[in-house]
Simulated scan of single mutants.
Amino acid sequence: MSARALDVEKIQDTTGNLYESIVIMAKRSRQIAAREKMELDEKLRYFEGFEEEDEFSFNEEQERISKEYEAKSHPVVRGVGEFLDNKVAYRYPDNQ
């Protein structure tokens, strides 16, 4: 993951508050990471409990699935990108 500069003014303009924007981006990034972890765990769970007779082909398939997820950009990069592209919906909790 490479570091890149972000326009703080653009981030702040979206919500009017820089810190609120950062919290929104962080929460979206965590959502993306959690969803992908569940998907990966679900795909790899298929391989649990198989006998060792065909272990080589199963290892290749597990490796292919893992590399597919490793090739994706980091959830933080995608979360920030979605926020900057105005693709993230957010709301404030009701004050009761």
Rank of each mutant, 00 (worst) to 15 (best):
M1L: 05
M1R: 04
S2G: 11
S2Q: 11
R4I: 02
R4Y: 15
A5H: 09
E9N: 13
D13P: 00
D13T: 06
T14M: 10
T14Y: 11
T15F: 04
N17P: 00
S21A: 15
V23W: 01
V23E: 14
I24F: 05
I24T: 09
I24K: 04
K27V: 06
K27F: 01
R28F: 03
S29V: 05
R30M: 06
R30A: 14
Q31V: 03
I32N: 09
A34Q: 14
E36C: 01
K37T: 12
K37R: 13
K37V: 00
L40E: 05
Y46A: 14
F47I: 03
G49I: 13
F50L: 03
F50R: 08
E51V: 08
E52D: 12
F56P: 00
N59L: 12
E61M: 07
Q62F: 00
E63C: 10
R64T: 13
I65Q: 09
I65W: 11
E68H: 01
Y69L: 06
Y69C: 04
Y69F: 15
E70I: 04
K72S: 07
V76R: 02
R78S: 08
G79M: 10
V80S: 05
V80W: 03
V80A: 12
G81T: 13
E82C: 10
F83H: 02
F83Y: 13
N86E: 14
K87N: 10
Y90E: 00
Y90N: 03
R91A: 09
D94Y: 10
N95L: 14
Q96H: 09
Q96R: 00
